[in-house]
């Protein structure tokens, strides 16, 4: 009886996994490797090499890299400052960063649309101060803005967590042995936070690479990322096969990144974001 109970408890989970993860992936795989006439083909997956798709993929990689680098440059100092403040309740810090994520993602991106538009708040302030306006909206720059805004917490939290774990006596030992602040930073702090940094980089790069909503809303339809190509294949081109093929290629990218991350983080230091 107990065994049955336990199995039933696992039931919903199994249903969820099969129904919403395994089956859809199988379906995508099926569409990816067949033509509309249900014949086997590799052309959908290989179409990533077509100039347009390649261009979109490279643009996606470029923007994702820019976003990741920006996030890193912003997050690391911020995390260090937070750590230096030695606030007692770290859960409070986590809460502050997670809080914006409770608000609808679309609303926040739309807010950025308003902020960045030609008559938006940022331009109004600039013009009131006597500067000429900046035309950022509907350019790749705006898309990077939106990505950085959206993904910043995913970079800050792992770095902050790994910073907090560094014991203060290790820092003192380094100084005791003659290390200046510079040396302490580069030889002690940076290596010890590396797993957090890698965690953060993956958690930013992967969603940035595959995003299409941000480029839709902030790119004014002018920025074509690989995510947009896939979306278009399904919604406008009605070519599910092509869309699936390209999705498979992206999935491979994502899996490769995660494998890379796993090989570089130590088992004991599993930096959980939450």
């Amino acid at each position: 009886m107990r065994k049955l109970k336990r199995q039933l408890c696992a039931g919903p989970y199994i249903v969820w996994i099969i129904g919403f993860t395994v089956l859809p992936i199988l379906m995508i795989l099926y569409y990816a490797f067949t033509t509309p006439e249900h014949r086997f083909t590799l052309e959908n997956v290989l179409s990533i090499a077509e100039p347009i798709h390649l261009k979109a993929l490279l643009l996606s990689v470029r923007l994702a890299l820019e976003c990741t680098v920006l996030c890193l440059l912003l997050s690391y100092p911020l995390a260090m400052i937070l750590n230096g403040l030695k606030i007692k309740r770290q859960s409070f810090i986590v809460f502050i960063f997670v809080l914006p994520m409770w608000m609808n993602f679309m609303l926040r991106i739309l807010a950025w649309q308003m902020l960045l538009s030609n008559n938006g708040i940022i331009n109004s302030i600039l013009q009131a101060l006597g500067f000429s306006g900046v035309s950022i909206l509907n350019t790749p720059a705006a898309v990077v803005f939106g990505m950085v805004y959206d993904f910043l917490p995913f970079m800050i939290l792992p770095i902050y967590n790994s910073l907090v774990r560094i014991r203060s006596d290790v820092i003192e030992a380094a100084k005791d042995l003659g290390a200046s602040n510079m040396i302490v930073f580069f030889r002690i702090i940076v290596p010890l936070t590396m797993s957090g940094v890698i965690s953060g980089v993956i958690m930013v790069f992967v969603p940035a690479l595959t995003s299409f909503v941000i480029s839709d809303l902030l790119g004014g339809g002018k920025v074509l990322l690989i995510g947009n190509v896939i979306e278009q294949s399904f919604m406008q081109g009605m070519n599910w096969n092509l869309g699936s093929g390209l999705s498979i290629v992206l999935m491979v990218f994502v899996i490769a990144s995660m494998a890379f991350m796993n090989s570089h983080t130590k088992e004991t230091e599993g930096t959980a974001v939450w």
Partner: peptide, 10 residues
Amino acid sequence: YNDLWKKLKS
């Protein structure tokens, strides 16, 4: 049409 559209967008 869709290929040309993609060319335009990219």
